[in-house]
Design a binder for these strands. Sequence first.
DNA 1: CACTAGTGAGACATTTATGTATCATGTGCG
DNA 2: CGCACATGATACATAAATGTCTCACTAGTG
Lengths: 208, 208
Amino acid sequence: MGRSEIMTAAIRHLNTDPAASMAEIAEAAGVSRATLHRHFSGREDLMLALAHQSLDRWAEAQAGAGIAEATASADPELVGRALHTLLTALIEIADEYGFGLADHAMAVHPELRPRAEELEEREVAFLTAAQRAGVLRADLPARWLSSAVLGLAVAARESLRRGDIARRDVPRLLLGTFFDGAAARDPGERTVPDGPGERTGNARKEGR
Amino acid sequence: MGRSEIMTAAIRHLNTDPAASMAEIAEAAGVSRATLHRHFSGREDLMLALAHQSLDRWAEAQAGAGIAEATASADPELVGRALHTLLTALIEIADEYGFGLADHAMAVHPELRPRAEELEEREVAFLTAAQRAGVLRADLPARWLSSAVLGLAVAARESLRRGDIARRDVPRLLLGTFFDGAAARDPGERTVPDGPGERTGNARKEGR
DNA sequence: CACTAGTGAGACATTTATGTATCATGTGCG
DNA sequence: CGCACATGATACATAAATGTCTCACTAGTG
């Protein structure tokens, strides 16, 4: 039982009870409270480690989607593919680390702010590039689009936990809503395919 | 200083620090901790009162938008107007009571569940009617659309608090994103007007 | 004035989570 | 075997929030 396994178990348990105590987390991880404290000096330390892990995942998602290259290029095709890949990866990250989104203390933590802001800036820059490339609407602030994606991811997470939607439908629902909106219109206009979604499926694998 | 004023102050303060203690809330409300306890038997009691108030507001928003009549009718025009009015009102409610959305304990409280579920059912029924009327896409579950709206409202709240967007732009951004999505396309297709939005402005007043 | 209701201030006990220290066990390795 | 190391169990001290109670003060009312 190393740090890594404990963190995995902690994530698992915190997703069912975001306010779980250290004792509960230790029990969920199958270790004693003492051992938990040997790996993490305190609750804040554990939360910080989890937060950093989520930021790692976020950074990986950005890199895996190739947003740096896509941002530099103006190729709509490249940007579009990167965008789909990124969003699909973000869905999973939000689902896994979503419990932290509610934690106000973490959002303001001085050790996390700079990292989170840098990742966000990269994302905003990428979204701005997507607007320039004609992939995304240019009449909405890129920063708002970034928040909107996160909001939809949180909504998807909630829906999943409540059993309202199937896990395999999430990418289609979220991407479909984000790109095309909820208003009815000519079906030929859809940006995201309604079908099984080969691209989405691949993006999921690539995101890892 | 009655219950009402204390609750208002509590909302105000909880929106800056969702984890505020009873002592802090009392101070923010300008009353002593003893007085706070005279009005609310405990933290749970206060939270419950606030939650009920938010559900009241939600119910009023539904009624004010006339979703019952709109659901019954199949008139796209009527449904469309009700939808805009409802969403605009929900934005404000989410902004004001958003601190509670993060509170897991409240979301599961046995006293609130039935009320929240009933309101949600009404909303889902209305959204389903909107799909039948051809106002909303029919290929996305109404329940998902309901969650998506909430997710976007939370995103808007966050953006507001971070100063990323202006308060007066929120309805346009949120409705624009929800209805039309973020993908670039022929500008003539937009469902939500880009202009100052007379309807939105009126809806705000009506929602109160 | 006398009375009452509401309030502020403070003391107190309780609960809960947390952080720390100690000791015994047990396992792997030299 | 003997040793180092990680762990579990346990006890202890601390901190913070909470709920309860008492007492004195004040404003308004009769």
